[in-house]
Design a binder for these strands. Structure first.
Length: 283
DNA sequence: ATAGGCACCTGGTGGC
DNA sequence: TGCCACCAGGTGCCTA
């Protein structure tokens, strides 16, 4: 599920309960997610203080005062629940464990952060903080969409070498960090480019706007996530699944939202994943 | 080196 | 109600 905007939203959601606070106890309810947890993880994390949270691509990174960094990936179905009372104070009474509640952070401030992931495509690991991006899961990831290295020239250049459909190229985390199936569909709709087009065959004139469009689409989604966060004392405190209506994703058969178009949105399968697009507006 | 396909896992939905 | 096929927001690994 979670692409960059959802991961960013989850990170911001756990921030108040975590940053500057001590993790009283880390509880692992099973030995692994996608991979086994690192050895001694409970002991290495319990009792540390969280210096700060960062996001790199779809990973949340929690820097601990033990000079280790906790890496969290939500996979496809990972969710995080923060237990707190309706007034927004940290609660010391927590809801009963649900199925697939695999990891629990009991904070010294009384907050409980629960990681739930039915499909277990998520992951956690511990690395030395000063390792930076050298971790095997991070070292091949491309530029952050909101970072300086990501700009028109960079993207035009890399896309003109890609012999795959533009859909696959933008999904490739080495090209740009954080896009997933939903937001690539939305970006291509906004760019008016068919997901089927081979990337290197698209003129520079047409690929040039894509980097800006990526920033706009992601920023808008983060904003939508932020507005659900503002409300989250009224909800159950569950983070990650804010849903705002997409323009093409999940809209097969519905009319294109572009002014005066009305063409039915089409769904095709590309390398095993659904692409949604308007066959008239996207060429 | 690059592109494409599979595998990992569980749950929800819709058809018969 | 049961069974089955198909779908799902990710990504590492293997193959050609």
């Amino acid at each position: 599920m979670p692409e960059l905007p959802e991961v960013e939203t989850v990170m911001r959601g756990i921030e108040p309960a975590m940053t500057g606070h001590k993790i009283h106890k880390l509880i692992l309810n099973r030995p692994d997610l996608r991979w086994p947890f690192p050895s001694g993880m409970e002991e290495r994390v319990s009792g540390t203080k969280v210096r700060g949270l960062r996001r790199r691509s779809k990973y949340i990174l929690a820097d601990l005062d033990s000079d280790e960094t906790l890496l969290i990936h939500l996979g496809m179905s990972g969710r995080i629940l923060v237990s707190r009372d309706p007034l927004g104070n940290f609660a010391h009474d927590h809801p009963p464990l649900q199925k697939h509640d695999h990891v629990i952070f009991d904070m010294e401030n009384g907050a409980r952060i629960t990681f739930n992931d039915p499909r277990r495509f998520g992951a956690m690991d511990l690395l030395e903080t000063n390792l930076g991006d050298a971790h095997p899961l991070l070292c091949k990831i491309g530029p952050e969409p909101f970072g300086n290295a990501f700009n028109e020239g960079y993207l035009v250049n890399i896309l003109k070498k890609k012999n795959s459909p533009i859909k696959s190229a933008l999904l490739d985390q080495r090209v740009v960090a954080g896009l997933g199936n939903i937001y690539v569909c939305e970006v291509l709709f906004k760019a008016g480019i068919s997901p089927k087009t081979i990337a290197r065959k698209i003129s520079a004139k047409r690929t040039m706007p894509i980097s800006q469009i990526i920033k706009e689409v992601l920023a808008e989604a983060i904003e939508a996530g932020g507005s659900t966060l503002k409300d989250f004392r009224h909800s159950d405190g569950e983070l990650g699944y804010f849903q705002h209506r997409f323009k093409v994703y999940g809209r097969e058969g519905e009319p294109c939202v572009n002014e005066g178009c009305e063409t039915k949105i089409r769904r095709i399968v590309q390398s095993g994943r659904s692409s949604f697009y308007c066959p008239k507006c996207q060429r």
